[in-house]
């Protein structure tokens, strides 16, 4: 796998940078060129709060190969206070307890090791708020 991709993804994956549309206010994560709501192309950068609410969820029992050692694990669509939604694992808990409405904090974690060379891929995972 070529490395430019990993550099390019640092702002969204490491810093949770999103774009707020200057036309309609919609927050898109990661940032895009064109607003999916109003098609404006002018955005300001916002950093998402490192927390959110579970919108929907599942527990993956049959995982892709790279995640074999982690199954069963919970995955959720999480909505941040800014209105951005993102797909994330929810960890450090019993996966069956991850249900719509749960409050989570978003923490910087190792997501996967990719390819034969085992490139370390980072991002955020949800952790239930005690």
């Amino acid at each position: 796998m070529p490395s430019p991709r990993y550099t390019r993804e640092i702002p969204s994956r490491y810093r949770l940078e999103a774009g707020r549309c200057k036309g309609c206010g919609k927050v898109v994560y990661p940032a895009r060129r064109i607003c999916p709501a109003c098609r404006a192309a002018d955005f300001e950068t916002v950093n998402l709060s490192r927390k959110g609410t579970v919108v929907t969820s599942t527990v993956i029992h049959v995982p892709p190969d790279e995640f074999l050692m982690e199954a069963p694990y919970a995955m959720a669509v999480v909505e941040t206070p800014e209105g951005a939604r993102l797909m994330t694992q929810v960890v450090d808990c019993d996966p069956s307890t991850v249900l719509p409405g749960m409050e989570v904090s978003l923490e910087f974690r190792l997501i996967r090791k990719e390819g034969k060379s085992g490139i370390l891929c980072y991002g955020h995972k949800g952790v239930p708020v005690a």
Binding site: P30, T58, V59, I60, V62, M75, M87, P100, G123
Partner: peptide, 18 residues
């Protein structure tokens, strides 16, 4: 945005189900 984090195809439909 999805596969990178470990979701599978059945996983997506499971989220629709929930």
């Amino acid at each position: 945005l999805e596969v990178y984090y470990g979701v599978t195809f059945p996983g997506l439909y499971a989220m629709i189900a929930r």
